Simulated scan of single mutants.
Amino acid sequence: MNPKIRIVNEEILSDNWYVLKKITYMSEAKDGSWKSQARESYDRGNGATILLYNREQHTVILTRQFRIPTYLNGNETGLLIEACAGLLDKESAEDSIRREAEEETGYRVTKVQKICEAYMSPGSVTEILHFFVAEYTPTMKVGEGGGVAEEQENIEVMEIPFQQALEMIKEGEIKDAKTMLLLQYAQINRLLDPVPSQQHILIAGPYRSGTGDDPHLIQRNIDFMNDIALKVYEAGHLPILGEWYALPLIEKAGSQRIGDEIFNRIFHPSSVRLLKYCDAVLRVGGPSQGADEMVKAALSMGKIVYRELGDIS
């Protein structure tokens, strides 16, 4: 907890739909003095949102529903176009957004990718929103969507071209912040670009992990990843291991042992550089912090991440 903040009192103002509190607290100023302040805080729990996109059709799934706060603040119809979203309801963010996607849109997605989390209105609302993206196909449609009738949801499902959705932001037809963020993320990271038929795939797996730096065990890991690389090549793609690139450079630079200053300066950073020129990452093998970091970096760049060799077409 922040030692410069002391909660003095919490008063519940409303506990009808969600919880509205008046928080009185003391904060320490730069001169060391303490000052009392009071703010209202609205706790509605945390939530999740997702953009469903179809790379082949170049479309996205959005929803439209009536939102009374927008109606009270200038939205003439009260209808708002949004990405699918909902509260977590004691579930993990991933489980929650899969459920919400099916309830609201009718699409049952299994592989979801988390891109970030954010406070959406930190001046008054406690909510953290978890942001996801996922590919959908027509075969994933298992219902009509529209929300849950018992919760009085009346949601229109919209499948629209991605470029049209971007234009709707410019024209003011889409004004929902989470939806704008997701659409712009998809644009920046080129999520809807066609997957190249021949991909440049970086193989990410354990090198030193679990070996105690035993050279025989390290070679075993390399042999395993080389076997995977050969299978990727035979599938029609161009594989690469960071080790193929880094190890000769490390030796040439004068490294004396695994994990010395020269090794650490080149080994992992060289893989990050390679990643920029690859279409995808294939995560293979057992535990590896370095490989997991490569996957995280790939996701942040909007790269494809494969977890199984069979996922590569």
Results as ranks from 00 to 15, higher is better:
N154V: 14
A149E: 13
V157I: 03
E150G: 08
M120C: 09
P138F: 01
E151Y: 07
H130Q: 06
T137N: 03
G143D: 03
V112C: 07
N154K: 13
S121D: 14
C116T: 15
I128F: 03
E159Y: 02
P138V: 04
E156T: 07
I160D: 04
G145I: 02
E159M: 09
I128A: 04
T137P: 05
H130I: 02
A134C: 10
M158I: 15
G123K: 09
M158S: 09
E156Q: 05
A118Q: 10
V148G: 05
R108F: 06
F162Q: 08
M120H: 10
K111R: 10
F132N: 02
A149W: 08
A118C: 07
G147L: 01
F162W: 05
A118F: 07
S124K: 04
E159F: 01
E156M: 03
P138N: 05
K111M: 08
G146Y: 03
F131M: 07
K114H: 11
Q113P: 06
Q113E: 13
R108V: 10
E117K: 14
E135K: 08
P138R: 02
G145E: 01
K114Q: 15
E153Q: 15
Q113W: 04
T126E: 08
M158G: 11
K114M: 15
I128Y: 05
E117Q: 14
